[in-house]
């Protein structure tokens, strides 16, 4: 299965599940309708994707993305929406913007993506007002080098382990928590390291600017780290 096709399928599944209000499973015929191809070929493709560990798929029940699949889908979505921004805001192309981006997204390298994002001033939303996903949300250390490259370096503070170090990339979440975190010096580019983890997914203890802080998992989930 060519890379392009894999990416297109994963992206479609992501889109559909987003449309369905983040309901996880998507039906085969929904995908077929969306891509305008036969249900049989969708089924075949989904089985392949499952073999490669990109999706969880059960005939008749539907398909959902695995972590690995979601990562690729998010990446491609990000590229897609960044390209839309570029076409729309810089080149002022409106007609066929979406189709253009759909094709270009598969050939845009990660470096180019980074550069493009920077060039556009790290936009958060695409011209249609949809959110541009952050570079990567879920990275585990077990991934093959290939995927690591694909999904370089930005992960949630929650996925870091005791002893890990990194730099803050971005913080989102409720205003009060954000204000408190920035008052305590948790800002983009600030170095951060994990000192201890409370058991049972309790809070984590971090070291930031020479002070030790305890923060709960829900807050750590909104802090993105560059490693």
């Amino acid at each position: 299965m060519p890379k392009e096709e894999i990416e297109e399928y994963l992206e479609t599944i992501y889109d559909l599940s987003e449309e369905l209000g983040n309901k996880k499973t998507v039906k085969t015929n929904q995908i077929a309708d969306f891509l305008k191809i036969s249900a049989a070929s969708v089924t075949e493709a989904l089985q392949r994707l499952r073999e490669n560990g990109f999706v969880e798929y059960e005939p008749y029940k539907g398909v959902s993305l695995t972590k690995k699949g979601l990562q690729i889908a998010l990446k491609i979505k990000r590229k897609h929406r960044l390209l839309e921004c570029f076409l729309h805001d810089v080149l002022k192309i409106r007609k066929g913007m979406h189709e253009q981006a759909c094709k270009m997204e598969h050939y845009l390298s990660d470096n180019a993506e980074k550069a493009l994002s920077k060039f556009l001033g790290n936009p958060k939303k695409c011209p249609d007002g949809k959110e541009i996903p952050l570079s990567n949300r879920l990275t585990s250390k077990k991934q093959t080098t290939n995927e690591k490259e694909l999904s370089k370096d930005i992960i949630r503070l929650n996925s870091l382990k005791k002893g890990d170090k990194g730099k803050i990339f971005a913080i989102k979440g409720n205003e009060k928590a954000m204000q408190r975190l920035s008052d305590l010096g948790l800002l983009p580019n600030t170095k951060i390291s994990i000192i201890a983890e409370a058991p049972l997914k309790g809070p984590i203890k971090i070291l930031v600017r020479g002070s030790h802080l305890a923060i709960s998992r829900e807050i750590a989930n909104d802090i993105y780290i560059e490693i």
Binding site: N174, L184, L213, I215, I219
Partner: peptide, 11 residues
């Protein structure tokens, strides 16, 4: 009303 998660200094 709202609840804020734990953000606490460990002195």
């Amino acid at each position: 009303g709202e609840s804020v998660g734990l953000i606490m200094e460990m002195p």
